[in-house]
């Protein structure tokens, strides 16, 4: 049976084709090229960016559209939304991406009147919890100076697998004044967890994990990251402003 199926199915798709009546071609058609297939030295790109699309090349699933409306949509996007927010997305075990918007009136309502206009803006990184651990008292782990005309940044974090959040604020007379707080996120783990000591299955877990990890290529350590996408280390970064009420700093 095995040998038989080999003959039957050398190519199932072609087998189907072989069963139908095939067309006979006229040899009288004009030949357009004496060389069957000119060779180029460079392969063409996979998806060429032609930069010009047919006016009819509108998105897929188009049926014939009705006429363009009297007031068509203008495709200029707002640079900002005049809302106060600070958001964080985890990027890999060692970095976060954050973006924010702090309108002027938020600053004027929050910052003490005697704060100098030139006070530096800071992002304060808090470690909220270790992975899978009980939620400890959160602790600030670094302050990152940011330009006032900067609205997004990649941030390096110290511990893969831990949970973090950020605050955006200003430094005033040695005190950190928070203007906005972000959501919490967990960055991914970067290694297999240590054995818990609980034996649940009859299995050689160590060997199974070794086999699982074969051929595995995962993110390289931070040296692999594009340096200019992470915050540039600056004097004072990693040191916390003193005098921020209500927090006990880690060392």
């Amino acid at each position: 049976m095995v040998a038989e199926y080999r003959h039957q199915i050398l190519n199932a798709f072609e087998k189907q084709m072989a069963t139908k009546k095939r067309r006979v071609f006229s040899a009288a058609s004009r030949r357009t090229d004496s060389h069957p297939h000119p060779v180029k030295s460079v392969s063409p790109p996979l998806r060429p960016d032609t930069g010009k699309l047919s006016a009819a090349a509108k998105p897929l699933l188009h049926h014939e559209p009705p006429p363009v409306p009297r007031r068509p949509v203008r495709h200029e996007l707002p640079a900002m939304y005049n809302e106060t927010y600070l958001r964080v997305l985890p990027r890999d075990p060692y970095s976060l991406f954050t973006y924010w918007e702090i309108p002027g009136d938020t600053v004027s309502k929050t910052v003490p009147e005697n704060t100098e206009a030139s006070s530096p803006a800071l992002l304060r990184l808090y470690e909220v919890a270790a992975r899978g651990g009980r939620k400890p008292r959160e602790k600030p782990v670094s302050d990152i100076p940011v330009g006032k005309q900067i609205f997004s940044q990649y941030i390096r974090v110290p511990e893969p697998g831990h949970r973090y959040r950020l605050e955006y604020g200003t430094a005033s007379s040695g005190r950190f004044v928070a203007l906005c707080s972000s959501n919490e996120v967990a960055v991914p783990a970067a290694q297999v967890q240590k054995p818990s000591g609980k034996k649940r299955a009859q299995a050689d877990t160590k060997k199974l994990i070794d086999f699982s990890a074969r051929s595995l290529a995962i993110a390289a350590p931070p040296s692999d990251f594009t340096a200019d996408m992470l915050e540039t280390p600056v004097p004072g970064a990693g040191q916390l402003m003193t005098g921020y009420p209500g927090l006990t700093y880690g060392t």
Binding site: G161, V192, S196, A203, L208, I209, D210, S212, A213, L216
Partner: peptide
């Protein structure tokens, strides 16, 4: 993906199998 399960907490008894 492999590391999504391999780095699970607690560690997976059977690896990814």
């Amino acid at each position: 993906d492999t590391h999504g399960l391999l780095f699970a907490d607690p560690r997976p008894d059977y690896g990814v199998f």
